[in-house]
Nucleic acid binder design. Structure first.
Lengths: 245, 245
DNA sequence: GTGTTTCAAACACCACTGATGTTCAATCCG
DNA sequence: CGGATTGAACATCAGTGGTGTTTGAAACAC
C-alpha cells in the first residue's frame, strides 16, 4: 500500500492526526509527511492545519482517482481482459470513466475499434493508437477523475449510436441496479447506456455489495456483468449474464 | 536541433539516405539511427527500407507535431506571454491547436478563466489546473497533432459563445488572410472565430510570409495579431492591431 | 516579547528511468 | 553461399523524482 493511501486512511479513521504521528506510523521523515499532506490537501482528501491534518473524506464519498488507480490492480486487469474479449473488431464502443475502464482502455490500444472514452485518462491512453478510431466527447472534466460530464457530454453521446457500452460503476446489486457516487456522472452513464445496443458492466467484487447515492439503471438494463469473484447476488436471476474473470 | 529533426531534414532533402550516412552525419551510432528511423516511420515522416529510409514529407505539408514543438521555443513563449496579457480574468476563451497555442495554454494554468482548447495537448496541459474552468470540445483527434476536428467539434463550438478566440495558423497575410494546411482544421478554426466576440491570432514571424492551402478567414476578421518580429506585411493597413512581443 | 514548535526552501543523496552504445545471433538480399 | 543489415539483449550513463537533512523564518503559546 502506498504511503499516500496509508496516510489517507489513518487520518480518515482518526478524524485528524499530527505530522509526528504519521511520521512514526509510516517510518518516513516529517518533511516527507508534510509534502504528502500537501499533495493530499491539493486533491481535496484532507485539510492542513498547523501540526497535522484533518480528514475531509465523508462516508459514502469516493476517494480520489490517484488513490484508487493502483488498488486491486490484478483484479481490474483480469476483468479488463475478459471485457475486451467480448468486443469484436470493427465495433463502436463507448467506454465509461473509472479505474477499471481505464484498464480496458489500455488493452484496446492495438485493437481495431471505434472508441469514445468518457474520461480524459482513457483518452490519453488511447490517443497514440494508430489502429483505432478515437472519438472524444465534449464536456467538463471533473478534477482528478477527469471524467467528462455536463451538457456537452450528453449531447455528444446523444448524437451517436454505439454497438456496445462498457460501464464501470460504484455499486451494483440486483435490487438497486447500477449506482454511482456523482449525480452528473450518473446522468452521463445513463445516456451512454441509452445510446448503446449492448451494455457490459465491468465491476470488481467490492462493488457488488455496495450501493451509492445516484441511481443509474436497473440491473435488467445490463446484458453482461464482468466481475472477478463469484458473488452472484441474484444478478443471474434478474436475467443478467455474469462473466467471472 | 534535435537529432530527429536533423534526420528528417537530411532525408527530406536527399529523398532517401542510408543508415551509415545518417550515423556519420549525426555522430550517433547506427543502432540509434535505426531506433530513430523507427520512431519517424511510426509518425509517418518517412518509410524504412533495408539499409536506409526514404522521405514521405511532401512540400506544402506540415512536419509532425513532435518535431515542431521545440522549434522557435523562445519566440513562441514570448508570443504566448503577450497573448495572455491580453486576456482578462473571468473571460471565456477558445484556444486553437498548434505549438504556439500550446505555449499559451501552459501560461494559463493558474489564471481564472473558462477555456476550451481545441487540442488534446492543451487539454492535458490544463487539466490539472484548480483555478480555471476547462471545457473539452468533442471530436476526433488528429494523430500526433491531437487537434480535435469533425462534426462533434463544430457542434461543441456552435453551442457556445466565447469572449475571445486565440487562433494559431500556418499562414497569414493581408492579401490571403488566415490559412491552414488541413481542411478539417480550417473549418474548426472558422467556427471558433464565428463563435467569439474577439479574435487574437498568435503567429510567429515565419508564418507571416507563408500561405497554406485552406482559407480560414480574411485578415479583417482578426482584431489583433501577436507576433515576434515587426514584419507588418500590410496587416496594419488592413485594420488589424499588430502586437510585437 | 520570548521561547518553542512548525514550516518551507535549499541542498545532498539515492534509486530509478530512459537514451545510447556494444555485442551477437538471426535474417535478408544478391 | 556470403556479406550486409537488423533487432534483441545487456552494459553504461546522464537526468529525474523522491527522500532526508539542515537552516532560517514564520506561527503559536505563554
Amino acid at each position: 500500500m502506498s504511503r499516500l493511501k496509508q496516510i489517507t486512511e489513518a487520518v480518515r479513521d482518526a478524524g485528524s492526526l499530527g505530522v509526528a504521528d504519521l511520521a512514526t506510523l509510516t517510518g518516513a521523515s516529517e518533511m516527507t509527511i508534510r509534502r504528502d499532506l500537501e499533495v493530499l490537501a491539493a486533491q481535496g482528501v484532507l485539510e492542513r492545519y498547523r501540526g497535522g491534518a484533518r480528514s475531509l473524506l465523508l462516508r459514502g464519498e469516493e476517494p480520489p482517482f490517484a488513490l484508487r488507480s493502483d488498488e486491486n490492480m490484478d483484479a481490474k486487469r483480469r476483468i479488463a481482459q475478459a471485457v475486451v474479449a467480448l468486443l469484436a473488431d470493427g465495433e463502436s464502443v463507448v467506454l465509461d470513466s473509472g479505474t477499471t475502464c481505464l484498464e480496458v482502455a489500455r488493452l484496446l490500444h492495438d485493437r481495431r475499434l471505434t472508441v469514445m472514452p468518457l474520461s480524459l485518462h482513457a483518452v490519453n491512453a488511447l490517443s497514440s493508437s494508430p489502429t483505432l478510431t478515437l472519438l472524444v466527447p465534449g464536456g467538463r472534466p471533473r478534477p482528478g477523475e477527469l471524467a467528462l460530464t455536463g451538457p456537452l457530454t450528453l449531447a455528444s453521446l446523444q448524437a451517436l449510436r454505439f454497438d456496445t457500452a462498457v460501464i464501470g460503476c460504484c455499486g451494483l446489486s440486483a435490487e438497486h441496479g447500477l449506482t454511482a457516487f456523482d449525480l452528473e456522472d450518473a446522468s452521463v452513464k445513463r445516456t451512454a447506456i441509452a445510446s448503446a445496443r449492448r451494455v457490459i458492466a465491468a465491476v470488481d467484487a467490492s462493488k457488488l455489495t455496495r450501493t451509492a447515492l445516484a441511481h443509474v439503471a436497473p440491473a435488467s438494463a445490463l446484458h453482461a456483468v464482468v466481475t472477478d469473484a463469484d458473488g452472484d447476488d441474484g444478478l443471474t436471476a434478474a436475467g443478467v449474464t455474469v462473466v467471472t474473470a
